[in-house]
């Protein structure tokens, strides 16, 4: 049996989180859902996922801080995809500089996200 890839989804919007969680699980990933930065940190400390999909704007711990934490403190090179709001290009650029691998802007197309996740995992 093929082991499912672990995906950490960090999204504070319940509805969107639920929707993406469902879609990603349906797509064959083992999804861990975190509603805020603290939960993300807890998850990361417990187990490192294969890929992280994170919103930029999150309570306690923003997406950029998450990228910084993963790259500089955890010294991990796992792929990170950032979800940003439209017109938030500056933050996206900063996230890229910090080491994010890809970004997708809201409104999110779940199918597009699936493709991007698969692509990043294939790169690895």
């Amino acid at each position: 049996m093929i082991e499912k890839k672990k995906l950490l989804l960090a999204e504070d919007d319940d509805l969107l989180a639920s929707l993406l969680h469902f879609r990603l699980e349906k797509g064959g990933y083992e999804v861990q859902l975190s509603k805020d930065g603290r939960e993300v940190k807890e998850h990361l400390d417990q187990q490192m996922p294969d890929i992280i999909v994170s919103d930029i704007m999150m309570p306690y711990f923003s997406g950029m801080e998450l990228v910084d934490y993963v790259r500089n403190e955890l010294k991990s090179s796992i792929p990170i995809i950032i979800i940003s709001s439209a017109g938030n290009e500056e933050n996206v650029l900063i996230a890229f500089e910090m080491g994010a691998n890809d970004f997708i802007s809201k409104p999110v197309s779940p199918s597009e996200l699936m493709v991007r996740v698969a692509r990043e995992l294939n790169k690895v």
Partner: peptide
């Protein structure tokens, strides 16, 4: 409400 909220967040075929 759920559908109206989701409308803002999703795009493409899902929309």
């Amino acid at each position: 409400e759920i559908l109206l909220d989701l409308r803002k967040d999703v795009a493409g075929d899902t929309l």
